[in-house]
Design a protein around this nucleic acid. Sequence first.
DNA 1: CGGCTGCTGACAGTTTATGGCAGCAGCATT
DNA 2: AATGCTGCTGCCATAAACTGTCAGCAGCCG
Lengths: 231, 231
Amino acid sequence: MPVARSERLLTLLQTLRRYRRPVTGTVLAEETGVSLRTLYRDIASLQAQGAMVEGEAGIGYVLKPGFMLPPMMFSEEELEALVLGSRWVARAAEPRLAGAGADALAKIAAVLPSDMREMIDSAALFVGPKRRDEDKADVSAIRKAIRLERILELHYGDEQGRISRRRVWPFALGYFEHVRIIMAWCELRQDFRHFRTDRIIDMALHDVRYPRRRAVLLEEWRKTQDVPVEN
Amino acid sequence: MPVARSERLLTLLQTLRRYRRPVTGTVLAEETGVSLRTLYRDIASLQAQGAMVEGEAGIGYVLKPGFMLPPMMFSEEELEALVLGSRWVARAAEPRLAGAGADALAKIAAVLPSDMREMIDSAALFVGPKRRDEDKADVSAIRKAIRLERILELHYGDEQGRISRRRVWPFALGYFEHVRIIMAWCELRQDFRHFRTDRIIDMALHDVRYPRRRAVLLEEWRKTQDVPVEN
DNA sequence: CGGCTGCTGACAGTTTATGGCAGCAGCATT
DNA sequence: AATGCTGCTGCCATAAACTGTCAGCAGCCG
């Protein structure tokens, strides 16, 4: 078991969380099955790693408000859900909780590899409340196209019901009131266009990458907007 | 440095994430400053801990899509923001992403101490879209009262503008369209009542705990509802 | 003050990690 | 098929880390 010690440290944290009141080192040592001396060393390790556990002589140990989540695996979509949710909280909740949401978002972003941090920028530009209608389009395929910077061929019906077929360069997905919107550069119009996913009749993912970086497109599109959209 | 190994494992993960292509064990060993033999053992440790890193002979190592967040400290409010955000995603997003939100929520809940898991049940029963008006009431104080099961004394004006003073047992906080709602047992009416936070004129937190468990109140209140509210 | 508790140092015994070596197996290219 | 590269495992001696015991000092409480 090469993880014996690490495991014990996590157990220690869990134990500390269980108690609301201060706990003496002796108790913690017994619960983790280790000597008192070693427990002190373990506590020191936790503090060195940034856990906010404090000890007071004559009192015991308390875990400061704040909870350490152990290392966790999230799938790409779960991560996107966390990010999207945090953004919504950051913009829609009361100030105090909103700040907490922004902080949580920053903490998650800080530990993400750089190529994933882009996702935070491009995923979910807007947030909206109501449950939206079912889509014909496969939203995960759209996200995949955005992530891989792939050209998307759309069979699309606009507001007047005119059907067109066009190749677009999708770079972001927005969540509006009832529908999702694909932000993309439209090859047909040579300009930025947005497409409601519920108006997509059919679509196909091309194997070829579009010739520009997603982040660049996003940045340019932002400049065309009058009001700052997010963040 | 009693954290040498743990730190190295995290470094290994980060390194694996940096590369998109498969990386040979030799490279990883050099980057982490360790022998090849030890690297193989480290990889085995990571796999044992659930990291989805896979190795193929003649190819190298690749980190499967999915991202391990290292242990992170979240404050109580940040955690609530994460939970609230995930719930919103779980109920408001498209099915696939909604599922991811629910999964993320479950993973977080699984590692939370039991007394914190209650928070997931009682925090944010409803979600609503629009930015709400400023409150006089200190929302964090309300949350504190709920968490500590404290009696709340309200100076409250109802819809007709009648002002009353009552002691209530708050057990949940709801987020509606424009306002937040405190769910509570009202000592005056001897029944469940809800109170809009923007109609609270003044309030005070009592030091005494109310005589019932928050979870029990929540459960009973749920039974009085016709439709299942959440989950 | 006295009891309890956190905290640190030293030291010896034990455990664990590490690196080198050897060998087997799978994948890709020739 | 054959070669080279690579993942993977077992073994073992050495080095490093961890652990427990003992001792002593300091801070908080009643």
